[in-house]
């Protein structure tokens, strides 16, 4: 492999930081995209479906630094509609725990302000 090629190598080491339930959710996802369509979050740099897809490819960093993670309103529409009966919403919430500790965390300013006021 040449350095200059814009191919991203798939390594799954990062995923070891995840809890087993989230890993299992990501693995089991069939990439149908239904949850992405159902989601009510207003910030869409990712969607529940795209979160799981990135996890499948081992790209945890991108998930943890996304603004979407904090935009989830907990409506659980994703979990209710998943044809594989995966609890996507819980996975999203659990990912926040890791995200909050990420050096490039995108913990949203308005929430910060809210908490600090």
């Amino acid at each position: 492999m040449h350095e200059d090629r814009p191919f991203r190598e798939i390594t799954l080491q990062d995923l070891e930081r995840l809890d087993p339930v989230t890993i299992r959710t990501a693995r089991s996802c069939a990439n149908c995209g239904r949850c992405g369509g159902a989601c009510l979050a207003r910030i869409r740099d990712l969607s529940p479906a795209r979160v799981l897809r990135l996890l499948q490819l081992g790209r945890l960093d991108e998930v943890l630094t996304s603004r979407f993670l904090w935009a989830c309103i907990g409506c659980r529409r994703c979990s209710r509609c998943c044809p594989q009966e995966l609890d996507v919403a819980t996975a999203v919430v659990r990912l926040r725990r890791l995200a909050a500790r990420h050096p490039r965390a995108t913990f949203p300013e308005h929430l910060l302000r809210l908490l600090c006021s």
Partner: peptide, 25 residues
């Protein structure tokens, strides 16, 4: 392709689900 240094094969493709190019050793 063959990576002679690592003595490994490298498979490259475009993952159309994530919209990104990926490589697997």
């Amino acid at each position: 392709e063959w990576d002679p240094g690592a003595e490994e094969l490298v498979v490259t493709a475009d993952d159309t689900l994530s919209g990104s190019r990926v490589a697997v050793r």
